[in-house]
């Protein structure tokens, strides 16, 4: 059974392994590069709110930011890696359903249940191995950039820690379920891509900011109350007056016209005189692992539900 699974998944596994190898080489090279820039530019001494106004630090930081920006295409591509690997692992099952070879497999001496057990265990193990390994590597890779950008930005949160593995598992589970139900390889791949991206985007945009309530704080003027690494989820849309009443932005501009030039002092003075404050909602950087845990749990639960559905479907509906 293990032999059969390996033989059936061989091509896809080798493609995946080659892909993982190339990515690993690229990651190690650019990662070492980024680390050496981090130490030669002495980024470590420019971190924190107090250095933002320091022109020397601004200079150094912007050089470093440019370096990170140069890697943004790579980062964005890497966010698709879990999907790609999950689909690669799931595709042979869809092919098995499409070509009807499950009828051959399920009438050998191995029962359908143990066939499913071995096959799924190996696939899940492969997805987990890839996801956790690559997630750890990317966490290492992102470290210098994290010190400057924080770990809540899209290309950081999605690549680091256990969520990377949970996305891979989810893509696999989705591919297997869709494949078992529609039994056509190409439509399965298409539908899996679309569904995966939809769910990932939906959760990232609308659900992730609300895993736990963000910290609410008033920002009147002066240095911002949040750190450079915190995740500001809502900035500038909520204004309140001194009595705590909510004001729309139009109300605010009616009282204090927005500054047109570079000088904001009169504007700040106006806000001050009307006791108007902008309310900020943010998640402190320290919540990173909690959020990683919650998001991983969501995707792992979705995967388990899908796999249970796929197993049920293949045991009772596929003939």
């Amino acid at each position: 059974m293990i032999w059969l699974t390996w033989r059936q998944q061989r091509l896809e596994t080798l493609i995946g392994a080659a892909l993982a190898f190339m990515v690993t080489v690229l990651i190690i090279r650019t990662g070492l590069d980024l680390r050496s820039a981090y130490s030669t530019l002495r980024i470590g001494s420019c971190l924190g709110q107090q250095h933002l106004q320091d022109p020397a630090c601004q200079n150094v930081l912007s050089t470093f930011q440019d370096k990170i920006l140069g890697l943004s295409n790579l980062s964005t591509s890497l966010t698709f890696l879990p999907l790609l690997v999950g689909v690669l692992l799931a595709a042979p099952m869809a092919l098995e359903m499409e070509q009807g070879t499950f009828r051959l497999a399920w009438t050998q001496s191995v029962t359908r249940s143990s066939w499913l057990r071995v096959r799924l265990t190996l696939l899940i193990a492969a997805a987990a191995l890839f996801g956790l390994g690559m997630g750890a590597l990317l966490t290492w890779w992102r470290w210098p950039a994290d010190q400057v950008q924080g770990r809540f930005v899209t290309n950081a949160f999605d690549l680091e820690g256990p969520v990377f593995a949970s996305y891979t598992l989810f893509a696999l589970a989705l591919g297997l379920t869709v494949g078992a139900m529609i039994r056509r390889t190409v439509p399965t791949i298409g539908l899996t891509l679309v569904t995966f991206l939809g769910i990932r985007f939906g959760i990232e945009s609308w659900i992730r900011p609300h895993y736990i309530p963000p910290i609410q704080t008033a920002w009147f003027s002066g240095p911002p109350p949040f750190g450079t690494l915190d995740w500001v989820v809502d900035k500038g849309s909520t204004w309140r007056d001194g009595a705590g009443h909510k004001l729309s932005y139009a109300d605010v501009t009616a009282l204090c016209p927005a500054p047109t030039g570079g000088v904001k002092d009169t504007y700040v003075a106006c806000l001050h005189s009307h006791r108007l404050s902008e309310f900020i909602y943010y998640h402190p950087a320290g919540r990173f692992w909690l959020f990683q845990g919650i998001e991983s749990a969501i995707f792992v639960s979705l995967s388990i539900a899908l796999l249970a559905g796929a197993v049920r479907w293949m045991r009772y509906r596929v003939t």
């Binding site: 033989r7 070509q99 009807g100 070879t101 499950f102 009828r103 051959l104 009438t107 001496s109 029962t111």
Partner: peptide, 15 residues
């Protein structure tokens, strides 16, 4: 299963 042999109408084989 070990005691039966089955040939499906579509003759599935791993191509």
């Amino acid at each position: 299963l070990p005691r039966i042999g089955f040939l499906s109408q579509d003759r599935p084989l791993y191509r």
